[in-house]
Design a protein around this nucleic acid. Structure first.
Ligand SMILES: NC(=O)c1ccc[n+]([C@@H]2O[C@H](COP(=O)([O-])OP(=O)(O)OC[C@H]3O[C@@H](n4cnc5c(N)ncnc54)[C@H](O)[C@@H]3O)[C@@H](O)[C@H]2O)c1
Ligand SMILES: NC(=O)c1ccc[n+]([C@@H]2O[C@H](COP(=O)([O-])OP(=O)(O)OC[C@H]3O[C@@H](n4cnc5c(N)ncnc54)[C@H](O)[C@@H]3O)[C@@H](O)[C@H]2O)c1
Lengths: 216, 216
DNA sequence: TCGACTTTGTGCGTGCGTTCACAAGGGCTT
DNA sequence: AAGCCCTTGTGAACGCACGCACAAAGTCGA
């Protein structure tokens, strides 16, 4: 379930405030979902609340963390230390959630050897060895679009089965491999779509096209 | 439909290769979706293909661009020029899709006044004026979590109705406002979840918890 | 100890998105 | 000009996820 991380975050906030128990209604509001959905999600993973009281925050944090596999640390490799890769590498919010930045790789000789956040950038040629040695289980691709598929293939060949892809391409991978794609251009385009709807929607279909192609 | 941008990207690739027409089957493969779904999506927005041939690439590009509102330029403000904000500001992939970085805002005096990608970072105090003057219609929030809701409120008060949020918080906004959230920690957590499943799933439920809390 | 109140867990109806499968329609070849 | 073949557009079934609403269950006060 993709909502568990959201619940977990909300629970951490509550825990930090010293709150011991929480009702499904309160937690659902904090997570921005329906309370019935929340209860169904929680019951689905076998956690029990107490009727008349609610859920014990600490217990739920542990249950969800375990379900998500956050009771262990995961080693992550960042491939491509350009604009985006550096931002990710310098972000502290990952380490605090059990994700350890274990390796950084790039093809640019000017970047290889650089130290970022206490880690030395390795050359992409060493990919296979680095991934094996560091016990990488998740790869983050922040390389240009044309490089994404080739790099992805190499990563998969090393046995990595989880990939977070920032390049604007559809990656082809074997079934056993999970790919999640973050495409910021698409997010903006979806916003633009709705924005346009609010403003009255598109008009002058055929006319506009002919003018654009042939001139007025 | 959230898939239109994906189709559009695939079409641009085809157009660059000089391809004139494309069948739903081919385009669907390139976009990573089912061909029936693709045809339904396209028919849904009124575009017509030619039976026995397929769709004209250029025509489809124009149709989808128009539907998404990409025939006009949108002015975007980036708020928070830290790690992530800078990466976004320096990214060329937005401008080429009709999104103009029109304003940058930050609260840190050390950052205000800096020039990034040809634009001067303004102080967040000037938010209201900048948004109005630059005709901002989309705001990108790349500020720390605690600052997100207050900044969001101010942006919404200026009349902005589209927000892209990178802060790990659930934003509360009026109904007319669209918020899209990009949460990279959640993406990693979802990958970890599946990774754990592949490795055999969680085991030793109650036992583990009691040990973690009470000691062995 | 008992009753009233609170909150969980879930059965069920509903609505949406996906997918199969096919008929209608247009091009291309002969 | 006519038939063959390819591809679109869509009807209909399927499945899933959401959310309402309620009974079971446990707590807290008297
Ligand atoms: N920066 C953004 O805000 C942003 C937004 C949306 C999408 N993206 C996408 O994210 C990806 C990275 O963006 P960026 O702005 O960081 O680009 P960038 O050009 O700044 O960085 C890319 C890095 O990848 C390295 N690289 C190139 N080929 C490589 C290879 N074969 N193996 C290893 N490393 C290689 C380059 O040396 C460079 O350091 C791109 O696909 C881009 O489209 C970025
Ligand atoms: N960097 C990443 O890879 C990454 C990954 C996931 C999530 N995020 C989230 O994105 C957001 C930004 O991350 P970051 O790494 O760039 O953080 P950062 O601390 O590097 O940058 C935040 C910027 O926001 C500015 N700021 C603070 N308060 C402000 C206010 N009230 N108004 C305007 N500007 C203000 C700061 O001066 C700073 O420049 C955070 O919420 C973070 O949790 C970042």
């Amino acid at each position: 379930m993709a909502r568990l991380p959201v619940y977990l975050r909300a629970l951490h906030v509550l825990a930090d405030r010293g709150i011991v128990t929480v009702s499904s209604e309160e937690l659902a509001a904090a997570a921005g979902v329906n309370s019935a959905k929340l209860r169904k999600d929680l019951s689905h993973l076998g956690s029990y609340g107490t009727r008349g009281v609610g859920y014990e925050v600490q217990y739920l944090v542990y249950q969800i963390s375990r379900e998500l596999g956050l009771t262990q640390d995961w080693s992550v490799a960042i491939i491509g230390l350009g604009n985006l890769g550096r931002a990710l590498a310098g972000y502290g919010g990952f380490a605090s959630r059990g994700f350890r930045m274990a390796a950084m790789l790039d093809a640019d000789p000017a970047i290889v050897g650089e130290r970022i956040n206490g880690l030395t950038v390795e050359h992409i040629d060493k990919l296979e060895r680095v991934i094996t040695d560091c016990g990488i289980s998740i790869a983050v691709l922040a390389v240009p679009a044309p490089a994404a598929q080739p790099v992805c293939d190499r990563v998969v060949a090393c046995g990595v089965t989880s990939i977070l892809n920032f390049a604007p391409v559809v990656l082809t991978v074997p079934d056993r491999v999970d790919v999640r794609k973050v495409d910021l251009s698409i997010e903006l385009q979806i916003l633009a779509f709705h924005e346009q709807r609010k403003a009255g929607g598109p008009a002058g279909v055929e006319q506009e096209y002919l003018e654009a192609v042939d001139g007025p």
